[in-house]
Write a protein that binds this DNA or RNA. Structure first.
Length: 586
RNA sequence: GCGCUUGUAGCUCAGCUGGAUAGAGCAUCGGCCUUCUAAGCCGAGGGUCGCAGGUUCGAAUCCUGCCAAGCGUGCCA
C-alpha cells in the first residue's frame, strides 16, 4: 500500500513539474508513513513540507496543488490536507480487507519477502570460549543472534550462522591442566588446586570419566608435579606465573599425545555440552569454526604475510606490531609476542580474512558490549587487507542482570557461582527465556526478572501473546462443539460486514506485519517484532472482550472467523520467527 | 584523561534516518465473569524526554558543551 501511494504521488509530482510549479531537477525522496491517529487517515505524506522551500510556496498551498494532480485510485477513499501541510490518505475499507484473504492464502509464508535478494550474509554469534558451560550472559547473545539470523532469512538473505570456537591459546591449556590436576586427585594424589584454574564441577566430571576409562595412565606423583613451582597467589606468589609453570609441567611429564588426549577430550566434552544446550534453546549453527585450524593450516601466517606486504607490520621490543593506528585505531597492536606466539588478535585477523574469502556479501559479528574497544582494530585489519570495512557489521549486546523479584542475583565470575543458561532454561523455560532476552533493544542493559518470567499471571508478557493464539484455537473448538462448521468462502465474501472499529483496527494492524518483519530484520531489532506481537495480541483480546464471534448470522460469523484466523496466523508466524511455541491451548 | 554505550512516568522500557496531543507493561486506584479460556477487558491518576545552548516551518529525535551511570583503554582471550 505504501508503494502504491508513493507511485501515485510520483505521478502527481511529474504533473506538477509539467505545470512548472516546481523545478524539473527537484527529486525528493517520497516517504509515506502510517499515521498514529486514525483521525489523520491511514497514511500520510510530508512531501509538501519538504518541497515548500524549493517551490517557494506555502506548504498547504503546495499540498493542494499536489492533491489536485493526484490520479484517482479506487483504493483511496479520501484525501485531506491537515496541520502544517500533511497530505492524509484514507484507504477504502474494502481494499484493506484484502489482507485477510492474502494471509489465508500465504499462511506461513505471510510476512516473508525477498528484499535480501539471496545475498550471502554470515552471522557469527555466541562464540563463547569452550572452557565451561554457557552462562546467562551468553544466553542473550544466543537468543539475539538466532532471531536476527531467522529474521534476515525471512526477508530473503542467504544466512550462514557460525560459532567461532576458541580452541587454541592459553585458556585452553589452563583447561587441560585443570582437568589433569583433578584427574590426579581422582587417582589419590594430593595437590593444591591453582587459584587460576577452572574450578567448576564439570571439570571434576570430565576428570572422573578419564580416570574410569584409563585408570592411572596419566598419573604422575604429586612431588614431581609440584617440584620447584613458583608460589601461587594465596602463598604470596603470582597466580599467572604459577599456572603457566603448571601447564609447562603437565606438558613435560606427559608425553605429547597424552597431553593432547586430555586436551581434546576436555574440549570435546565441553563443546558437546554447549551444542546440546544451544540446540535445546532453539539455537543452531551451520558451522563451528575452529581457531586451532587457522593456526595449523597456516591461515594466521598467511594473514600476517599479507599485512606485511601491505606495509602495516613492524618490529618493536622483540614483538611484531600491526600499525592499526594508521587506520583509525587508537594505538598499534601486537600480533606476534616476543616469545614467538601469535596473539588472539592475529587469529582474529585470519578469521575475518577467511570470512571475506568465503565470499559473504556481509558479515555480522555479535559481541558482548565489553568487547566494543575491539571494533576499530578489526576494521583496521580488514582495511589493511584491502577489504571494505563496511562489509563487517558488529552488533553489541549488553549484559543481562538477573533478578528474582527485587533481589539482584550475584554474577560473580568466581567459580561455581554463575547461573548457567541450562539452569535458567530449567527454571523459566525456553519460550520465556527467549522472549525476555529478545524483548529489549540489544544495546540496552537487560533486567531479567526470574520471578516475572516464571509467573503465570497477567504480569508475564510471554503468556499474553501465546494466550491470544490459544484463545483463537479455543473459539474454533467451540465452533465444532456447537455443531457449526466454518465456511471460509462465505466469510471472505462478507468481509465488508467487519465494520466495527475494533475490526478495522485489527485489520490495519495485521496489514503492518510484513513491514514490521522487514524493519526488524534490516535494523537487527527483534524487539520491534515482540512489541508488535504484544500490540496485536492486545487488539485481539480487546476485540474478543467486546464482541461475540460465534453469532447466529452465518455471514457475519464466518467473516469474523476469517479475521481471527488471520490474527492467529500472524501471531503464529511471528512467534515462529522468535522460535517460541504458539500453543493451541493454555 | 581518552573512547564506546546509556540517561524518557514510581519501576522496567518503546519511540531516535526530525513531524501532528511523547506511548506501553508493571505498580497504584475504580469497574467488568448465567454468553467463544478473567493468563483477559474497560477506565483514572502519573512526564522539566539528564541540564544548557544551537540548527528550522517543526527537536525526545540532529549539532555543541556540561552532568551522571556502565563498559573499555594488556605482548589476556
Amino acid at each position: 500500500m505504501k508503494q502504491k501511494l508513493a507511485s501515485v504521488i510520483e505521478k502527481a509530482l511529474s504533473e506538477i513539474k509539467n505545470q512548472g510549479i516546481i523545478d524539473e531537477n527537484v527529486t525528493p525522496k517520497i516517504t509515506i508513513e502510517r499515521t498514529r491517529d486514525s483521525q489523520h487517515g491511514d497514511f500520510a505524506s510530508n512531501i509538501a513540507m519538504i518541497l515548500a522551500k524549493p517551490a517557494k510556496m506555502n506548504p498547504r498551498q503546495l499540498a493542494e496543488k499536489i492533491v489536485n494532480a493526484l490520479p484517482n485510485d479506487p483504493a483511496i477513499s479520501n484525501i485531506e490536507i491537515a496541520g502544517p501541510g500533511f497530505i492524509n490518505f484514507f484507504i477504502n475499507p474494502n481494499a484493506q480487507y484484502q489482507i485477510i484473504s492474502q494471509i489465508h492464502d500465504l499462511g506461513h509464508e505471510f510476512g516473508k519477502s525477498d528484499i535480501g535478494a539471496g545475498k550471502k550474509i554470515q552471522v557469527e554469534f555466541v562464540s563463547a570460549n569452550p572452557t565451561g558451560p554457557l552462562h546467562v550472559g551468553h544466553g542473550r547473545g544466543a537468543a539475539y543472534g538466532s532471531v536476527v539470523s531467522d529474521l534476515l532469512e525471512a526477508v530473503g538473505f542467504d544466512v550462514h550462522r557460525e560459532y567461532y570456537v576458541n580452541d587454541a591459546g592459553r585458556q585452553m591449556d589452563i583447561l587441560a591442566t585443570s582437568i589433569w590436576l583433578r584427574y590426579l586427585e581422582e587417582c589419590g594424589e594430593i595437590i593444591p588446586f591453582p587459584s587460576n584454574g577452572y574450578r567448576g564441577d564439570y571439570i571434576r566430571d570430565i576428570a572422573r570419566e578419564i580416570h574410569q576409562h584409563s585408570e592411572n595412565d596419566y598419573r604422575k606423583p604429586a612431588e614431581l608435579v609440584m617440584e620447584n613451582l613458583p608460589a601461587d597467589e594465596p602463598q604470596g606468589g603470582d597466580k599467572e606465573a604459577h599456572i603457566d609453570a603448571l601447564i609447562n609441567r603437565a606438558k613435560e611429564l606427559l608425553d605429547s599425545s597424552q597431553y593432547e588426549d586430555i586436551f581434546s577430550l576436555g574440549l570435546k566434552q565441553i563443546l558437546d555440552d554447549i551444542k546440546e544446550d544451544l540446540a535445546e534453546f532453539g539455537v543452531t549453527f551451520q558451522e563451528w569454526f575452529s581457531e586451532r585450524q587457522l593456526m595449523t593450516n597456516g591461515s594466521v601466517q598467511d594473514a600476517l604475510q599479507r599485512l606485511d606486504k601491505a606495509g602495516y607490520l613492524y618490529q618493536k621490543e622483540g614483538a611484531t606490531w600491526f600499525a592499526s593506528s594508521q587506520l583509525g585505531d587508537e594505538k598499534d597492536r601486537v600480533v606476534v609476542r616476543d616469545n614467538g606466539q601469535t596473539t588472539y588478535f592475529a587469529s582474529d585477523i585470519a578469521y575475518h580474512m577467511n570470512k571475506l574469502d568465503r565470499g559473504f556479501d556481509q558479515i555480522i559479528d555479535i559481541w558482548g558490549a565489553d568487547h566494543h574497544g575491539y571494533i576499530p582494530r578489526v576494521k583496521a585489519a580488514l582495511q589493511a587487507l584491502g577489504a571494505n570495512p563496511e562489509k563487517l557489521k558488529v552488533l553489541l549486546v549488553q549484559f543481562a542482570i538477573l533478578y528474582r523479584g527485587k533481589e539482584k542475583i550475584p554474577m560473580s565470575t568466581r567459580a561455581g557461582e554463575f547461573v548457567t543458561l541450562r539452569q535458567l532454561r530449567n527454571e523459566v523455560g525456553k519460550d520465556a527465556a527467549r522472549f525476555f532476552y529478545a524483548m529489549r533493544r540489544s544495546e540496552q542493559h537487560l533486567d531479567f526478572d526470574l520471578k516475572l518470567a516464571t509467573s503465570k499471571t497477567n504480569e508475564n508478557p510471554v503468556y499474553y501473546v501465546q494466550y491470544a493464539h490459544a484463545r483463537v484455537c479455543s473459539v474454533f473448538r467451540q465452533l465444532d462443539e456447537k455443531g457449526w462448521s466454518r465456511d471460509i468462502k462465505q466469510g471472505m465474501d462478507n468481509l465488508d460486514k467487519l465494520s466495527q472499529p475494533h475490526e478495522t483496527e485489527l485489520v490495519a494492524t495485521l496489514s503492518r506485519y510484513p513491514e514490521i518483519v522487514e524493519k526488524s530484520a534490516l535494523k537487527y531489532e527483534p524487539h520491534q517484532l515482540i512489541l508488535y506481537l504484544r500490540e496485536l495480541a492486545n487488539e485481539f483480546h480487546t476485540y474478543y472482550n467486546a464482541h461475540q464471534f460465534l453469532v447466529e448470522d452465518s455471514a457475519l460469523r464466518n467473516a469474523r472467523l476469517n479475521l481471527i484466523d488471520a490474527a492467529k496466523q500472524v501471531i503464529a508466524n511471528g512467534l515462529d520467527l522468535l522460535n517460541i511455541n504458539a500453543p493451541e491451548s493454555m
